[in-house]
């Protein structure tokens, strides 16, 4: 969507147009869901957080400045809502499986699990061993591919801080995932 069109749609949404807001929802819903999923690792939670984020965005549209990037602003809301959800719902066992037992809940004995899928599972677990800020940076910058500038705006820190935490986060993940690579020929 060209910038002028995007700004026009946002302005319409700010004036209360539901049709305009729906365009914004349709444009950003997949990435909002992916972001939420990255933090929550659960479809239902991710869906609910993504939807709630849009509702909050709609309610706060008046405070959004049109010259800013709507996506970045929305992802900041998604990030905050997802972290709040994590703080309040720490009951999902998948988020706390220790890497000491990497196959603990992966249908032990089932040799048909695709290697790529299994590796992805390990990455997700390692990710959730990281401190919150490092995890946020790795998800937003590395896995979702947002720019360093966008991530700094979402997290409210400098670009330098983003780069530092990205490096530290990836190093820690490498260490956590080292058991996989030991098994490799």
């Amino acid at each position: 969507m060209p910038v002028a069109d995007a700004q026009h749609v946002i302005q319409k949404a700010q004036e209360g147009s539901h049709d305009a807001f729906r365009i914004l929802v349709e444009r950003h819903m997949k990435q909002a869901y992916n972001l939420a999923y990255g933090f929550l690792l659960d479809h239902d939670d991710a869906e609910d957080v993504a939807q709630e984020s849009f509702v909050r965005a709609y309610q706060s549209l008046g405070s959004f400045r049109v010259e800013s990037e709507f996506g970045t602003w929305l992802y900041r809301i998604v990030h905050n809502v997802a972290l709040n959800r994590l703080r309040h719902e720490k009951t999902k066992s998948s988020r706390h499986v220790s890497l000491d037992h990497p196959l603990a809940d992966s249908a032990s004995g089932d040799g048909n699990v695709a290697e790529g899928k299994e590796q992805q599972m390990h990455v997700e677990r390692a990710l959730h061993e990281l401190p919150t800020l490092q995890r946020s940076v790795v998800i937003l910058r590395h896995l979702e591919g947002l720019s360093t500038r966008q991530v700094s705006q979402i997290l409210g820190c400098t670009e330098g801080t983003v780069k530092t935490h990205l490096h530290r986060g990836l190093k820690k993940m490498k260490k956590l995932l080292s058991f996989i690579h030991k098994d490799m020929p």
Binding site: K30, H142, G145
Partner: peptide, 10 residues
Amino acid sequence: TVPVPQTKPS
């Protein structure tokens, strides 16, 4: 070591 997934959850 931390590959970017080829597919997204969406």
